[in-house]
């Protein structure tokens, strides 16, 4: 090996004492290298293999019942007539409202905490609490939503409505968006801010023209991750009382609703195998919606990076 020959040549030209001080042991170090690499490959393979198996399983049982009528029919007691239309519409409504609510509030809070609040006990107190909130189980948010939006504010939110569901999920993902926003802002080099201030800009001008655009791709990634979590949430929506059997399309944010994961859960918990296949079809639909959402975000992000 070339490395060894170089080391040998140097060792020969040096004193014998120096040779004893350094024992390069290259063979051993490369072996460790190879073992570590193999371990990481194994870890990746396990993760990918499990995911692939899952997808394969879902596809096999779901593709059969996945047709046009599945997408355009309402739920039914007869599996051959049951469809996912109302759940798909409900998910669309809820996710739209969650995005509308959570983006400005989450990014705004992140901006305040990172750019304006300074480093005092109050900011640190809020930071610790937000990190804790990000780890609270989602069913707790469901109970909060039930109390706050269904019972206390029910007159305004329409009780067990799309609006209530969206507000509950917004609470659930706000901590994630705030943390992601702060991370993205922290990654903006200070030299850009200083350049802005040195030209006689105030905080708002520096943030709007430089800090926020530079951090925006990172913020967008965080928002999309958060929305991806929200789209799969079942527990908090069941807690606030989202219905499973919705044989109509919601016409406004105050209507009752169901979403894809609740519908899937409902089908899975029935004894007939036909409904299990319907659940698999529902999972495929959910995954496709998720992929469409993510690719839209990636598209936005690359547009934004090119513009700079």
């Amino acid at each position: 090996m070339t490395f060894e020959s170089i080391t040998d040549a140097q060792a020969e030209s040096n004193l014998v004492a120096a040779e004893a001080k350094f024992q390069p042991n290259l063979a051993g170090r490369y072996r460790l290298d190879a073992i570590f690499k193999a371990a990481t490959i194994a870890a990746t393979t396990i993760a990918i293999a499990v995911l692939a198996w899952l997808m394969f399983d879902v596809l096999i049982s779901g593709v059969g019942s996945l047709d046009r009528s599945f997408l355009t029919s309402f739920p039914s007691r007869r599996p051959e007539q049951a469809g996912i239309l109302s759940a798909l519409a409900g998910t669309g409504w809820v996710m739209f409202l969650v995005a509308v609510f959570s983006f400005p509030i989450g990014v705004g809070s992140g901006l305040f905490l990172e750019e304006f609040s300074g480093d005092n006990w109050f900011a640190r107190f809020i930071e610790i609490n937000i990190s804790n909130l990000a780890g609270v189980p989602s069913i707790i948010y469901g109970l909060l939503g039930l109390t706050a939006f269904v019972i206390i504010l029910g007159d305004w939110t329409g009780g067990r409505s799309i609006l209530t569901g969206a507000l509950t999920l917004t609470l659930l993902i706000l901590p994630i968006i705030i943390v992601a926003t702060r991370e993205a802002l922290r990654a903006v080099p200070d030299s850009i801010r200083q350049a802005g201030y040195a030209l006689g800009a105030n905080s708002w001008q520096v943030i709007w023209s430089h800090t926020l655009p530079t951090a925006f791709p990172g913020i967008l990634t965080g928002v999309i991750l958060a929305l991806s979590r929200a789209i799969g949430e079942t527990a908090p929506l069941i807690t606030i009382g989202a219905l499973t059997f919705i044989p109509f399309l919601p016409e406004g944010p105050l209507d009752p609703f169901t979403v894809l994961p609740i519908q899937i859960y409902n089908w899975v918990s029935r004894p007939q195998k036909d409904f299990h296949d319907l659940a698999a079809s529902g999972i495929i639909v959910l995954l496709v919606v998720l992929l469409v959402m993510n690719s839209f975000a990636i598209f936005l992000r690359s547009r934004f990076q090119k513009a700079r």
Binding site: P189, S191, I192, Q194, A195, G196, Y197, A198, L199, G200, S209, H210, P213, T214, R308
Partner: peptide
Amino acid sequence: LRRRIGMVFQKPNPFP
């Protein structure tokens, strides 16, 4: 004041 007293930094820091 900063409009009347400009500054150039150690590391070139053009805006992106």
